[in-house]
């Protein structure tokens, strides 16, 4: 059974069957990645462009590895701010890229909706690698994969996303994906970092981190963007750490062996204390291999649609 869409723009509206298919396929590729020869010829002859309008070495490398493992031809196209300044419009850039006879475009852009716009002006399969504060579907799929790997299921679990929800594309994609898979989702953070009326997406809002720990099976802890004007959205990093940081005492006090996801790199002592970061199997940091497997699954499923 193929995917129901030829693009992956976000997890909003993506049916359960599609997410299951991606996760199952990722599982297969995960095994491939443990073999001595990690390459499969599936996308031989396909050209994939990694079009990055924002620096994101980790995401780009993960996609690139996935592309190479599937034997696709890869073109990296980092659009420096200088060429934007020169005045080349997004449309012109895309037209130039498409002239290279590409099959798929992976796009990272600072403006929400850009991947959607690409589907209107070109024929390639489009994969969103993060658009503004909108969605980052492959990161959320990786989170889903990691949770499923640990619990053997998704349905019925309780996940709380902690941090700056207002400015997180990962949070939004997680909310859509988790809800679709039957997970109970809540968000926790200072009120200034929770979007207004987010309850309408079917998530609960919790302002107390202890309660979030007690009530959930998994915490998906977002990285606090230190460069985002601290002092505006919350008083100080110190206060954030004190009231929303995940510490050993807090976990012990609430008496629960909760699973913690963090995309890394951690701001130690801010969103997670060093003790928790270094301790035990309670925390899952960004899983590079799983990330490649999930992206391979997406590329494979879209690239072999027709």
């Amino acid at each position: 059974m193929p995917l129901s869409s030829r693009h992956l723009l976000g997890l909003q509206g993506v049916p359960k069957e599609d997410i299951e298919l991606i996760l199952d396929t990722a599982h297969t590729f995960r095994e491939v990645l443990d073999r001595p020869i990690k390459k499969v010829p599936t996308l031989q002859g396909k050209t994939i462009v990694n079009l990055f309008y924002e620096d994101s070495t980790r995401t780009r490398i993960s996609f690139e590895l996935a592309e190479k493992r599937l034997s696709a031809d890869t073109v990296n196209f980092s659009v420096s701010t200088s060429s934007v300044k020169k005045g080349e419009s997004l449309k012109d850039t895309i037209k130039n890229v498409e002239a290279m006879k590409v099959d798929m475009i992976i796009i990272r852009h600072s403006a929400a909706g850009t991947p959607y716009y690409l589907t209107k002006i070109c024929d390639s399969n489009i994969i969103n690698a993060g658009d503004g504060i909108h969605e980052h579907p492959t990161q959320a799929l990786l989170d889903l994969y990691s949770i499923k790997e640990r619990f053997g299921k998704l349905k019925g679990l309780k996940v709380c996303i902690v941090g700056d929800i207002s400015h997180s594309r990962v949070a939004l994609s997680n909310i859509f994906g988790l809800k679709t898979m039957g997970v109970k989702v809540s968000v926790c953070g200072p009120a200034t970092m929770i979007p207004k009326r987010i309850e309408e997406l079917g998530v609960d809002v919790i302002y107390n981190i202890d309660e979030a720990i007690r009530e959930n099976d998994i915490l998906n802890v977002l990285r606090i963007q230190l460069e985002r004007k601290a002092g505006e959205a919350f008083p100080s990093l110190r206060e954030y750490a004190k009231y929303f940081g995940i510490t050993k005492e807090r976990l012990d006090k609430n008496g629960k062996n909760i699973l913690i996801l963090h995309p890394g790199p951690i701001n130690r002592g801010v969103e997670i204390s060093s003790e928790v970061a270094d301790g035990s199997d309670q925390i899952i940091l960004n899983q590079v291999t799983n990330g490649v497997a999930v992206r391979m699954a997406v590329l494979y499923l879209l690239g072999t649609l027709n």
């Binding site: 929400a112 909706g113 503004g132 504060i133 909108h134 969605e135 979007p195 009326r197």
Partner: peptide, 15 residues
């Protein structure tokens, strides 16, 4: 406009 749609679309909200 700020509301559930601005959140869902990831666009900066104007209250």
């Amino acid at each position: 406009n700020e509301g559930v749609n601005s959140t869902m679309l990831g666009l900066p909200p104007l209250p």
